[in-house]
Design a protein around this nucleic acid. Structure first.
Length: 282
DNA sequence: CTTCTTGTTACTGA
DNA sequence: ATCAGTAACAAGAA
């Protein structure tokens, strides 16, 4: 479930707590979830936390990194251990009872705080990589939607002569990164563009509008702390996001379109549930 | 029982 | 090269 706004929310919170800490022990609960030798990271200070596309990067002092992809059901939960004082922000009880059935790996830091990686469906991963290996992974990714490199001209060039429907193309990581199913549906609704429009049929004005609404949608998602359905996505304190309360079309079949009031419909595009307004998205 | 699921990659056959 | 469809990863919920 995590798309760019959810990952960005997690990264901003990790950036507040991780720099300066050192890992003292690691636990691996499932072999698929942690790839590489975490022992190489022990006792090295964390320097910063960053994000590229939907990938979280924890930087270590000597060029080592943890790359983390949450895929569908991954969660990162940070707990402060027994030294925690009162007066902090509220957190749900369950995070103090980790590891759980779905905990796949955990890291304990030099101040007894801990980071837990939970992942029900095992699609997510954590990799231990050096800087040059990280660069190789990132080199295959198109720019983030909210990056300045994604301009009308850039997208127009990428979509030229593409007959495929616009919805699948804005989800394509070789064109732009960061949109997932939820925010892609919402961005298309705000731009009033039908998800099945062949990409090459979009006018320059429509591409300009779509680029703007896609950036706005992701930035709004970040501002709202991401989207939480069924309690699956939570931030590092176990807290839900708020974007679900302002969703334009995703999960709103039968409800009124925020543009025109017509009923939102649900269909299937590229095997994925797609919500849109048949009346105003043309 | 069936169908669905917010990510991503890879394969097919056209 | 492009593309539509499908499967795969795996574990749930409805």
């Amino acid at each position: 479930m995590p798309e760019l706004p959810e990952v960005e929310t997690i990264v901003r919170k990790l950036q507040q707590v991780l720099p300066g800490k050192k890992i003292v022990t690691t636990q691996q609960y499932h072999p698929k979830s942690l790839i590489g030798s975490a022992a190489e990271l022990l006792h090295l200070p964390i320097t910063q936390v960053s994000r590229r596309a939907k990938i979280i990067r924890i930087h270590f002092d000597q060029g080592q990194n943890l790359l983390i992809h949450l895929k569908m059901t991954g969660q990162l939960i940070f707990t402060k251990g027994q030294t925690r004082l009162g007066g902090g922000h509220p957190t749900p009880d369950w995070i103090n009872q980790l590891p759980s059935k779905h905990t796949r790996a955990s890291f304990t830091f030099d101040d007894a705080s801990q980071l837990f990686f939970n992942d029900q469906r095992l699609f997510g991963w954590i990799k231990v990589l050096m800087d040059d290996q990280v660069a190789a992974v990132f080199s295959h990714l198109a720019p983030d939607v909210i990056d300045d490199a994604v301009t009308t001209e850039y997208v127009q060039k990428k979509l030229k002569n593409r007959g495929q429907n616009i919805k699948q193309l804005i989800l394509d990581n070789t064109i732009m990164c960061g949109l997932g199913n939820i925010y892609a549906c919402d961005a298309l609704n705000q731009a009033k563009i039908h998800p099945l429009r062949p990409a090459k049929s979009l006018s320059t004005q429509e591409i300009e509008l779509l680029v703007r609404t896609a950036k706005e949608t992701l930035n709004k998602g970040i501002a709202m702390g991401g989207t939480t359905f069924d309690g699956k996505y939570v931030d590092i304190d176990g807290m839900a996001g708020q974007y679900q309360s302002v969703l334009r079309v995703y999960g709103r079949a039968g409800k009124p379109c925020l543009n025109c009031g017509a009923a939102i419909v649900k269909t299937q595009i590229g095997g994925r549930g797609t919500y849109f307004c048949e009346n105003c998205q043309v």
